[in-house]
Simulated assay, not measured.
Amino acid sequence: MSSREYLLLCNRNKELKSIFLTSFIYEEPNTDRSQNMIKAYRFLIHAEIEYYFESVIKNTANEALDKWQNDYEIKKPLLSILAFHNISFSNIPTRASEINSGNDLRFRIFKCVNAFKDIIKKIMA
């Protein structure tokens, strides 16, 4: 099933094709006018595709953030955002015997709930 964003992208593609890729382009593809129309189409469809991905990613991240804020359930999109953000935990244990409440990653995440929410909100702003 296609998402609303994908259907919007498809509609925009049809609209841009009808405006820029007219029969003239196919009849005389090597003229300056044809080449400019093709470039304009490529530029605008590229922007539409970027907007599509940005919308899908933002919606996915917002859903994951809502899930975290409401149920404290961490979804993969949220973990992915954190994985590529410049957060670091010092003294991460290398052996099971070194784990304690000060360096257990699960404990740290639980302990930093409010900071965690603020970081996600800043990243997504």
Rank of each mutant, 00 (worst) to 15 (best):
F20W: 07
F20S: 05
T22K: 11
I25P: 05
I25D: 03
Y26A: 05
Y26E: 04
Y26H: 04
Y26T: 08
Y26V: 03
Y26M: 05
E27R: 04
T31L: 10
D32P: 06
R33T: 13
R33I: 13
S34L: 10
Q35P: 11
N36M: 10
M37Y: 10
K39F: 10
K39G: 14
A40N: 14
R42N: 11
F43R: 01
F43H: 00
F43P: 00
F43D: 01
L44C: 01
L44V: 00
L44T: 02
I45S: 06
H46G: 12
A47I: 04
A47H: 06
E48W: 06
E50N: 05
Y51F: 08
Y51I: 13
Y52D: 11
F53Y: 10
F53M: 09
E54S: 03
E54Q: 03
S55P: 02
S55R: 11
V56L: 04
K58A: 14
K58P: 04
T60K: 13
T60Q: 12
A61I: 07
A61Q: 09
A61W: 09
A61M: 08
N62I: 09
A64I: 07
A64F: 09
L65D: 07
D66Q: 12
K67D: 12
W68S: 13
Q69G: 12
Q69I: 15
N70S: 13
N70I: 14
D71Y: 15
D71V: 14
Y72Q: 11
I74H: 14
I74L: 15
K75G: 01
K75R: 03
K75V: 00
K76I: 02
P77T: 09
P77W: 14
P77I: 06
L79F: 06
L79P: 05
S80I: 05
S80M: 08
I81G: 00
I81W: 04
L82F: 05
L82S: 03
L82Y: 03
N86R: 02
I87G: 00
I87K: 02
I87S: 02
I87W: 01
I87L: 02
S88H: 07
F89W: 08
S90W: 15
P93K: 15
P93E: 14
T94M: 04
T94K: 08
T94G: 10
T94Y: 04
R95V: 15
A96N: 15
S97R: 11
S97L: 09
E98L: 05
I99M: 05
I99T: 11
N100P: 06
G102L: 03
N103E: 05
N103M: 06
N103A: 10
R106N: 13
F107L: 06
R108L: 09
K111I: 01
K111V: 06
C112M: 01
C112W: 00
N114M: 07
A115D: 03
